[in-house]
Computed example of a mutant assay.
Amino acid sequence: MSCTSCYLSSCVRRVPVFKGLADAEVALIEGITQSKHYGKGSLVCVEGEQSDALFVLHTGMIKLTQSSRDGKEHILRFLFPGDYCGQFSMLKNTESYVNAEMLEEGTVCCLRREQFLPILAGNATLAYNFLLSMSEQLQYAEDWAGAMHMLEVEQRLAKILLYFYSKDGAVLSNETHPRKILLPASKKEIAAMIGTTAETLSRKLNLFTKWKWIAVSKRVIDILDLNALIEMSEIGTSRKM
């Protein structure tokens, strides 16, 4: 996918991978960073298409999906401002293994392989940060795969609510109660992510509401008892339903 030559330095500075670099090194990366504005529903990259760029979300929200052989869409994860994708395709100069769809309009920055890899190869701090960040993504994927097999539905629900709560792009600004989060997709899609049905998800949300852990208003979740959700998300702490 192509990127315009629009310069957007703040995109680089908000990404954890680039933290700890000297100003001159950050400026070097900013110099090769391009950006593009996408409308809601637009595809930043397409599964199966050649890709040579690292895509960093600056504003908006992205849904990463894969298609099964029968054509069904499987949600892998959501990207919030500061998150990125495309690193594996960029490093191997191969096809994208995901679709990256904008859930709302926003701006995406990209760093091209031919420009970024020489900088990566010549900077030990950047290379270490990049490797560490990818390791954390792999660990998250492994942890979630384990959760799908080892945790009960209510534990998986607590875990994904905490994940959304940890992302600035999912938290709604509210001075009186800063723990409101917006579900980035429909309840049917969220249910599929945690390996259950929309009906079961609704029952579990109602149960959490009954216990006064959360309050629900359509796709807005108000977290009332953060510690309870944390305890529920851990293995072996499920209550009798």
Rank of each mutant, 00 (worst) to 15 (best):
L157P: 01
P178W: 02
L126T: 02
A158M: 01
A145E: 13
L91P: 00
A100N: 09
G169Q: 07
L138P: 05
V153L: 08
M134H: 01
L131P: 03
L182A: 14
W144A: 05
L138N: 14
I119A: 05
F116L: 12
E142D: 15
C109R: 07
V153E: 10
G106V: 08
V171I: 11
W144C: 03
H149R: 14
E175I: 11
G169R: 07
L157S: 00
S166F: 09
I160M: 13
F116R: 02
N174R: 13
A170Q: 01
G82Q: 04
A185D: 12
L120I: 13
L91T: 05
L111N: 09
H177P: 03
A147V: 06
A158N: 00
L91Y: 00
L111W: 07
Q137G: 08
F116H: 07
F130Y: 13
P178D: 03
C85D: 04
D143T: 12
L161M: 13
N174W: 07
K187Y: 04
D168I: 00
V108C: 08
A124Y: 11
L131I: 10
L138Q: 14
Y140S: 15
G82C: 05
D168A: 14
P178N: 06
G82R: 03
F164D: 01
Q115V: 00
S173P: 04
R179H: 14
S173D: 13
L157N: 00
N129H: 10
Y84A: 05
C109E: 08
M148S: 03
L182C: 10
G82W: 06
G82M: 04
M134V: 02
H177N: 12
V171G: 05
L162V: 07
G82A: 07
I119G: 01
L120S: 13
D168V: 11
S186E: 11
K187R: 13
V98I: 09
G86K: 02
S89N: 05
F88V: 15
C110N: 05
N129W: 00
Y140A: 13
Y128L: 10
D168H: 05
I160S: 08
M148P: 00
H177A: 10
I181N: 10
C85K: 00
I181C: 07
T125M: 08
A100D: 08
Y140N: 11
R112A: 15
V153Q: 05
P184L: 06
Y140M: 12
P81S: 01
A121E: 15
E136C: 07
L172P: 01
I160H: 08
N129T: 00
K180P: 03
A124K: 12
I119S: 06
L151Y: 05
K187L: 04
T125V: 12
A185F: 07
E104P: 11
E101Q: 15
E104K: 14
K159F: 03
E136D: 14
A124N: 11
K167C: 14
R156G: 09
V98S: 00
T176M: 06
I119M: 09
L132I: 11
P81C: 00
E105S: 15
S96Y: 05
R179D: 15
K159T: 04
Y165H: 12
